[in-house]
Simulated assay, not measured.
Amino acid sequence: MIDLQIITAVVLAVEFGHGKELSKGISAFLVIVIFLFVLAYGRSWGPLGWLVPSELFPLEIRSAAQSIVVCVNMIFTALVAQLFLLSLCHLKYGIFLLFGSLIVVMSCFVFFLLPETKQVPIEEIYLLFENHWFWKNIVREGTDQEQGKSNGKPVAT
């Protein structure tokens, strides 16, 4: 996907914006490259926006949390759709370099900050975050009330 974004940016930088129209061959090439990007996105990053949150949230709040995820996803999809042409006018071919760099940032985030969930039951995913080198500082082992109950001590309310 990064390569396809760079190819699109390079073709637009070289062929577009010099007071001439793109040839049919270059236009067809760009359509194919963008088609391949959409295909690659749909097979890789596209589903992750739905899969990762569905595994992250505990069962007690999963449906409510997924509702918020869907709402936020739709809001940002609408924003990207509305602002793309404006961004294309101002950044020109650079918008595709921006998208390519965002793919690099997302890949680094997933590689370094999300634990592997293969062969882990969905009910135990939270344990991966409680023991992860980064997330253990943010995610706590249950609430104070749950910790009090597990120690056998009453919790003051």
Score class of each variant (00 low, 15 high):
Leu127Asn: 10
Ile103Asn: 00
Phe57Lys: 01
Leu114Asn: 02
Gly49Val: 01
Gly42Pro: 02
Glu15Pro: 01
Ala78Ile: 12
Gln5Ala: 10
Glu15Ser: 12
Asn73Cys: 15
Val80Arg: 13
Val104Gln: 01
Val11Phe: 06
Leu79Ser: 15
His18Glu: 10
Lys153Phe: 13
Leu48His: 04
Ser67Thr: 09
Pro154Leu: 09
Gln66Leu: 14
Ile2Arg: 03
Tyr41Ala: 00
Lys153Ser: 11
Thr143Tyr: 05
Glu123Ala: 14
Gly49Tyr: 01
Leu4Met: 09
Ile95Leu: 07
Gln119Thr: 11
Val14Gly: 08
Ile26Tyr: 01
His132Gln: 04
Gln5Leu: 13
Cys71Asn: 15
Phe76Gly: 05
Val52Cys: 03
Gly25Ile: 12
Ala156Val: 14
Ile95Pro: 01
Val70Gln: 13
Ser63Ala: 13
Ala65Thr: 08
Ile125Ser: 02
Leu113Thr: 06
Gly25Thr: 13
Phe84Lys: 00
Glu130Arg: 06
Gln145Ser: 15
Ala65Phe: 06
Leu91Met: 12
Val52Glu: 06
Ala156Lys: 13
Ser23Asn: 07
Ala78Val: 11
Thr143Pro: 00
Leu4Thr: 00
Tyr126Asp: 04
Ala40Trp: 00
Asn137Ala: 14
Phe84Thr: 07
Ile2Tyr: 00
Leu85Trp: 04
Ala64Tyr: 10
Gly17Ile: 03
His18Cys: 10
Phe84Asn: 00
Pro115His: 05
Leu30Phe: 15
Ala65Pro: 05
Ser101Tyr: 11
Val11His: 02
His90Gly: 02
Phe35Tyr: 08
Ala64Glu: 12
Ile122Tyr: 02
Ile7Lys: 03
Leu91His: 11
Ile138Met: 07
Trp45Ala: 11
Thr8Leu: 02
Ser54Met: 14
Thr143His: 03
Val10Met: 07
Lys24Arg: 15
Ile125Tyr: 01
Leu48Arg: 05
Leu22Arg: 05
Ser44Ile: 15
Ala78Ser: 10
Ser67Tyr: 02
Trp45Val: 09
Cys108Ala: 15
Leu88Met: 12
Arg140Val: 08
Glu141Met: 12
Phe99Asp: 01
Asn131Pro: 01
Ser27Ile: 04
Glu146Leu: 09
Met1Ile: 09
Lys149His: 15
Lys118Val: 15
Phe109Pro: 00
Trp45Asn: 09
Leu12Lys: 02
Arg62Asp: 08
Asp3Gly: 10
Phe29Trp: 08
Ala28Ser: 15
Val38Gly: 07
Phe99Leu: 09
Trp133His: 13
Phe29Ile: 04
Trp135Asp: 03
Glu15Trp: 05
Leu30Arg: 06
Pro47Ile: 02
Val33Trp: 01
Glu130Val: 06
Lys149Pro: 03
Glu15Leu: 06
Ala81Ile: 04
His132Cys: 02
Cys71Leu: 14
Phe134Trp: 14
Ser27Asn: 11
